[in-house]
Design a protein around this nucleic acid. Structure first.
Length: 272
DNA sequence: CCCGGAACCTGAAGGC
DNA sequence: TGCCTTCAGGTTCCGG
């Protein structure tokens, strides 16, 4: 499930591979993934535009084009972007972009939940996102302000993209463990020390995951087809019943707003 | 404000 | 073996 570290890895890998190239052809095998404009207009307008740079906002990949448009991609649950040789035979390839040098880019997405937009102003898609966790401008104060006045479970708030951009289920669990905070704690009940620990944990967990090129749990691969390795250092996420690296207690799982949440009942106590 | 549930999707996993 | 149900969770929307 591509969250911030996975999309950032795709951005970096892709930057080396496609900046300066031009879109030559677009083959939409699952047109419903295009939300704007119409699939026909999307393909027509994209064709011929050169790639200026590849950016990211939260979990969105932003391909800035020399015609002034931005191609926006969201991978949702199972999407990935592969360079070339996944090949036209791959049954899960939902869109193929052919570039002017003959290379191909494949949007692979078994579950068809991924989305694409081609817009003049990217803010129409990403304008409502909260701050980037890894921006230098994201401070403990900023996090404290984001928590204030919210009676929701902290886990739910961390996954709210309008509050923080880029954090999803896996990394929210890892950051809460690193900060020693229970996923059900009310966001507005965190003390200053806890907010500072959580801020540090978020930055650390996401930075280290980027260094490991993201986590390949299910359907995520780097554009080269190689897996990321961030999952190998997960301490709680997807480790139900395994020993907590801090205290040895078995990792437990509960549901927070419909999402499976892994935590150590010992190291993350409910009262904080 | 806060929550739950449905919808979008399909492969994997578990039960019988 | 095989059918059926449930689960996985990012996002949006809708109703209580």
């Amino acid at each position: 499930m591509p969250e911030l570290p996975e999309v950032e890895t795709i951005r970096r890998d892709l930057t080396r591979a496609i900046v300066g190239r031009r879109f030559a052809a677009v083959d939409l095998k699952w047109p419903r993934m295009v939300l704007y404009p119409s699939p026909e207009a999307f393909s027509r307008r994209l064709k011929g535009q050169g790639i200026r740079d590849v950016g990211r906002r939260g979990k969105y990949l932003l391909v800035h084009l020399d015609g002034g448009d931005t191609l926006v991609l969201h991978f949702r649950m199972s999407g990935s972007l592969l360079l070339a040789d996944a090949g036209p035979d791959d049954p899960y390839c939902r869109a193929v972009f052919t570039l002017d040098d003959g290379s191909r880019l494949c949007f692979r997405d078994p579950r068809k939940l991924g989305k694409m937009w081609l817009v003049e102003d990217e803010a129409t898609v990403v304008g409502s996102l909260g701050p980037e966790v890894l921006d230098s401008g994201f401070t403990v104060d900023g996090l404290t302000r984001a928590l204030a006045g919210h009676a929701v479970p902290i886990k739910a708030l961390l996954c709210d993209q309008t509050v923080l951009a880029g954090v999803g289920n896996m990394y929210a669990d890892e950051a809460l463990f690193a900060a020693g905070i229970h996923p059900l704690r009310r966001a507005d009940s965190l003390g200053p020390g806890e907010a500072a620990r959580l801020h540090r944990a978020l930055v650390k967990v996401l930075s280290e995951a980027i260094e490991s090129h993201g986590a390949s749990m299910t359907d995520y691969w780097r554009p080269s087809g190689e897996p990321g390795t961030a999952q190998s250092v997960f301490k709680v996420a997807h480790r139900l019943g395994a020993a907590c690296p801090g205290c040895g207690a078995p990792i437990e799982r509960l549901r927070v707003r419909g999402r499976g949440s892994y935590f150590c009942p010992n190291c993350q106590c409910e009262s904080g």
